[in-house]
């Protein structure tokens, strides 16, 4: 496993030792909690964007991406009534939809490390 080093302020170390805590395990625990927080915030952010796209296009990502590539009528309807530049939004929507999965897998990995 690759490792890195960091500088910890003495103030923190002194307080930590007064609780009888080990520095390495304290850092690992703190980082894990911090990363869980970051990842869950990111998932929430992506999900919020995904919901906006679902509302705008009135379907989920999988249905949209299937219909848009199989139906002329669907494309024409989208371009005339929703967004002429759906291709740009579809790319962002894909990023959000698949990104939620990416981060969820990473979250599971981090949780399994405890």
């Amino acid at each position: 496993m690759d490792t890195s080093s960091a500088v910890i302020k003495n103030n923190y170390i002194e307080v930590l030792y007064s609780f009888g805590k080990d520095l390495q395990s304290a850092v690992d625990t703190a980082l894990q909690k911090y990363l869980i927080d970051l990842i869950t915030s990111k998932i929430a952010e992506l999900r919020k964007k995904e919901l906006l796209f679902e509302a705008k296009y009135e379907c989920d990502y999988q249905s949209f991406s299937q219909n848009i590539s199989e139906s002329d009528e669907f494309v024409i309807n989208i371009e005339e009534n929703v967004n002429k530049m759906w291709e740009n939004e579809l790319a962002e929507w894909e990023f959000c939809y698949k990104g939620i999965d990416d981060w969820s897998k990473k979250l599971r990995n981090i949780l399994l490390m405890s």
């Binding site: 991406s65 848009i68 590539s69 199989e70 139906s71 494309v75």
Partner: peptide, 24 residues
């Protein structure tokens, strides 16, 4: 507009038809 999205109009130009086998 240049793009490489899975557009049925582009699919039809390339393959002569559209359908689930060309989706995506």
């Amino acid at each position: 507009g240049f793009d490489n999205a899975s557009d049925p109009r582009a699919i039809r130009l390339k393959y002569g038809k559209i359908g689930s086998e060309y989706a995506g």
